[in-house]
Design a binder for these strands. Structure first.
Lengths: 248, 248
DNA sequence: AAGTGGTCTAGACCACTTG
DNA sequence: AAGTGGTCTAGACCACTTG
């Protein structure tokens, strides 16, 4: 529970910590009425803005529910949810303490198929760049990447060799601040994936598919990342304690 | 981009939306200097508290970085990350529009093994309740659940039959506000899972393991959820647009 | 009618950091 | 020394909701 940072906590941080502690330890059960703002003002000898800031943050984090005229109440915890961060591949490999490398296996320019048009929401058969890559952790195949890039959205990609920078990282530099939808599932490796990952055909692989869109909701890229199932693990931590902590 | 809610946006919401829009569309690229607070005050004819609130929120969401004396700047986007919500099983099945049911296959009280003690951080061989359940979507096996409950932390579990409520939901009612760590991977189904899920041995299954701890960091429960790989999909959306929206 | 939260103002003092 | 952000105050007006 102690904080390694030397600086004293601000007043609203202290109030936030106090209330969170009471909720997380179960001292204040779901449904418990939080003292009204005026009581908290007296208790902490502070202004209303300060307690309001705290309660607003807790409400955003869904730990409390606020109702006019009635007051604020500890929420019923929403079901077992997780906040999962999927890091980029280079970061994942680096975390293993193994040298990272990648190779481009295939690169071709073509028109989007009908299926792709539907999946990515293209109005017409836009030109796309199809790329296949293999990412390696040391000598070992780490991930097989199949990617489609919308060349209408990112025409520079057509001339890029992707020798220096893998397509994912390259795109992130050029088209920042996209929205993404992920789909994660387990499948049996088909022939090509199995061969490239050095595993048996039909062996379990973890498949992550991501469609990335710009703020205007144009599909920028679709990528399928295929990981050998027994070597890869997504880890997610759900901790309500993070609420309102400054992002660093 | 339009909002279906009829009420007009508050001033700070409008400012937040404006700045986010500029960042998400790439009009303000990473590194771009945000107008200083006094400029924004003039621009929106508002007080410093109001603009400060907006910039603080954006900084918490890591869309901007604030530096004293220098100003605030659009962040370099962090790598392709996702916010993933894993719903509870009943909710998942309900979303399919199929009747949900579950059955308890096995229930036994015993002492934690050395391996379990290490995994869950028990100091000694605490008494645990071992439970196996099968969750069904209609007639079809949906998920096989293997669970361990720490009876030192939740002694009432020993007497519970889990006929009405599945163990996960039952625990959530009794021990709210836990912290959880998830591990997600693809594996080949071993004999028992395969049989219970009605799939071939070795077929790909999606395995989610979760260790749940109380605020005092005592392990409450460990659960392994095994889903037929081809029938289950985790979906995660990462959208910076959600920043600061009231939680509803 | 009254309690409670939602939002905003105008100002203050300070800390940090660059030059 | 000066610019910028970090935090806080005291007060205001209003909206919503319960009784």
């Amino acid at each position: 529970m102690s904080d390694s940072s030397p600086q004293p906590l601000s007043l609203h941080q202290r109030i936030l910590n106090d209330i969170q502690q009471l909720i997380l330890t179960g001292t204040w059960q779901p449904g418990h009425k939080i003292p009204v703002e005026h009581e908290l003002m007296k208790q902490y000898n502070c202004s209303r803005m300060t307690v309001s800031k705290v309660l607003t943050q807790l409400a955003h984090a869904r730990m409390i529910e606020r109702r006019r005229k009635s007051g604020s109440f500890v929420s019923r915890p929403h079901s077992q949810s997780a906040v999962l961060t999927i890091p980029d591949i280079k970061t994942e490999v680096a975390a293993l303490g193994v040298p990272y490398s990648f190779e481009v296996l295939h690169k071709a320019r073509r028109k989007a198929t009908a299926e792709e048009r539907e999946m990515l929401g293209f109005e017409r058969a836009v030109p796309v760049l199809e790329i296949e890559c293999r990412h390696l952790a040391g000598e070992r195949p780490f991930c097989f990447e199949q990617r489609l890039i919308n060349l209408d959205a990112v025409p520079e990609a057509a001339k890029e060799t992707f020798e220096e920078t893998a397509p994912g990282a390259w795109l992130l530099q050029r088209v920042p601040w996209t929205l993404a939808e992920h789909r994660i599932r387990a499948t049996g490796a088909e022939a090509r994936s199995a061969k490239l990952l050095g595993i048996d055909r039909g062996a379990a692989v973890l498949t992550i598919e991501r469609t990335t869109r710009s703020a205007q909701s144009t599909a920028i890229t679709f990528v399928r990342l295929i990981y050998p199932g027994d070597q890869h693990e997504l880890v997610a931590t759900f901790s309500p304690e993070r609420v309102g902590r400054p992002a660093q």
